[in-house]
């Protein structure tokens, strides 16, 4: 093979190169032809044409649903309409009655069942005074500890070092 622009060669070299390249060409072609048999080429041909047909087939137009669909149930069964109407009327009456009972002066108020059971509507908890001094608060704490459960906390109190003891050391 003579490549344009390639360095010049002697005629014998050119001839042997041509033979060499012919050999290489033959081997390369044979290499591919062994795997691409006639059967494979026929299958390939069929696949290509089928794929082309699939790709170029115009898309199917899917019809939209009927513009006036059939109405089920209620139209066919008149009795159901009466039931639905009665339910709606009951709901409206209930809502209106609730509003009236709430807005009228001296109307019914919801009373907690616990208050009714205790017989008193007054709250049982007393408000905590926010004006209590620190000394009063600590005093009340000591009283509470000594009166309820103080004995249970006594071992823990014994283990805890006191401030004045540390200061003395």
């Amino acid at each position: 093979m003579k490549i344009p622009g390639a360095p010049s060669e002697t005629p014998s070299e050119t001839l042997s190169d041509e033979r060499l390249m012919d050999d290489v060409s033959a081997v390369l072609r044979a290499e591919a032809d062994v795997v691409f048999t006639d059967e494979r080429l026929a299958r390939q041909h069929a696949h290509i044409l089928r794929r082309i047909e699939e790709e170029t087939r115009p898309g199917q137009v899917i019809a939209f649903p009927n513009a006036q669909p059939t109405r089920p149930a209620l139209r066919a069964r008149p009795g159901m309409r009466w039931v639905a109407g009665a339910a709606a009327a009951g709901l409206l009456i209930g809502v209106a009655a609730g509003h009236l009972a709430h807005d009228l002066p001296g109307g019914i108020r919801a009373i907690p069942s616990a208050a009714i059971a205790s017989g008193s509507l007054q709250p049982t908890l007393q408000a905590v005074s926010t004006t209590m001094s620190e000394e009063e608060f600590l005093g009340q704490m000591e009283i509470a500890i000594e009166t309820t459960g103080g004995s249970a906390l006594r071992p823990l109190d014994d283990l805890t070092p006191l401030v004045w003891e540390i200061a003395a050391q």
Binding site: L28, R29, E31, A32, D33, V35, F36, R40, L41, Q44, H45, H47, I48, R51, I52, E55
Partner: peptide
């Protein structure tokens, strides 16, 4: 063209399945 295309694709891919796929895709 398919035989020549198969030869080219096989030299590139060195696998008959891949070469087959490449040829089909190219024609499509």
């Amino acid at each position: 063209l398919q035989r020549r295309a198969g030869r080219i694709a096989y030299q590139y891919l060195r696998d008959v399945q891949d070469a087959d796929e490449a040829v089909q895709d190219a024609f499509v």
